[in-house]
Design a protein around this nucleic acid. Sequence first.
DNA 1: AAAATTCGTTGACTCTGATCAAGAAATAAA
DNA 2: TTTATTTCTTGATCAGAGTCAACGAATTTT
Lengths: 190, 190
Amino acid sequence: MEQIRNYFSKFIVLTDTEWNAFSSAIRKETCTKKQFLLQQGEECDFIAFVGEGLFRFYYLQEGEEKITAFFFPGDFVSNYRSFLTRQPSEHYIESMSDSVIYKIHRNELNALYNEYKSIERLGRLIAENLYLVVTKRLDSFLYSTPEERYKELLNRNSRLLQDVPQYMLASYLGVKPETLSRIRARKQAD
Amino acid sequence: MEQIRNYFSKFIVLTDTEWNAFSSAIRKETCTKKQFLLQQGEECDFIAFVGEGLFRFYYLQEGEEKITAFFFPGDFVSNYRSFLTRQPSEHYIESMSDSVIYKIHRNELNALYNEYKSIERLGRLIAENLYLVVTKRLDSFLYSTPEERYKELLNRNSRLLQDVPQYMLASYLGVKPETLSRIRARKQAD
DNA sequence: AAAATTCGTTGACTCTGATCAAGAAATAAA
DNA sequence: TTTATTTCTTGATCAGAGTCAACGAATTTT
């Protein structure tokens, strides 16, 4: 749990009292490979913090998996849209390896928001952080070609390349596996 | 100003005291058509609320304007990324008509965050709201074709179609003006 | 109102990624 | 280790958006 407190300190430093209240609302969970944290149609009533492992967040479109995001240790894993709007999720969240997460449920988080100003602030900082993450991804689709997105990935996120099969990377980049294979072949030639 | 208080009530209802503090940090500004609210390279140190008018948020890529967003009355207009990260803006914000906005600067907002829990919460709700806006737009790029995005626009945002020239809509949809013209011609045929 | 400019449409052609198909390589299962 | 399955690569072809160019329509300027 102290590991988590340390991770969270990049957002805000909580007093012992605040941390005790917060941490007692958190539940540690483990899961094995290929387990669903959330299925399509379910409402997402939690935010979880990834301690160990890897998750993918995807949408099923006519039988095809469209991967929207990966979640690594240090990331928040949730369908944050469903969490905020209370609408059923259109996405699946699935573990890609044995994983450890720290989960907090909406009701308990809301109670903490009401009780502690610092946790209300933590909630703001998390929302702001998630905003920055999605806008960055949106920008990469608005302003870059698949090849540029792949290059970007090479520079910024080596974990993705190590831990994720190529056909999933292709989906994440918004292209077909054949196309990513050709992009890589092209780059070899340079 | 009461108009603004009413608009904000969809996020949170402030007491008179809180509202007085908040509203005294807000400055009303007017601008005419084609004025820059923010230029590339500047740091965005404000969030503004659109009272009247229309703004576009765009990125200049090799001389070409790539429109990322439009802001209508009731929207927050800001480079929220630059606001949060204190990095210089890569985008321009330009008025498309005579407009009225209500601006609050980062320093004053932060002071209010510190002083009032309810305004801290307002900040969270705004961040959450902006998150939902960008994820929706990201999803439209991840899961839809330009034609589907155009149809979506027809159904959901009639103001865009009325007030925005077609070549800007094309940019917003991520296609060239010629392509949007052909999409429209195709749809006529149905 | 006339002229100038900007905006929207259409055609011919190009380019990039998708699709379909086959086979090689890598990984998992027996 | 052998077999089976999944993943990756490569080729041929297709489809949709981009580019370039011309022209008509609409708007703005004079």
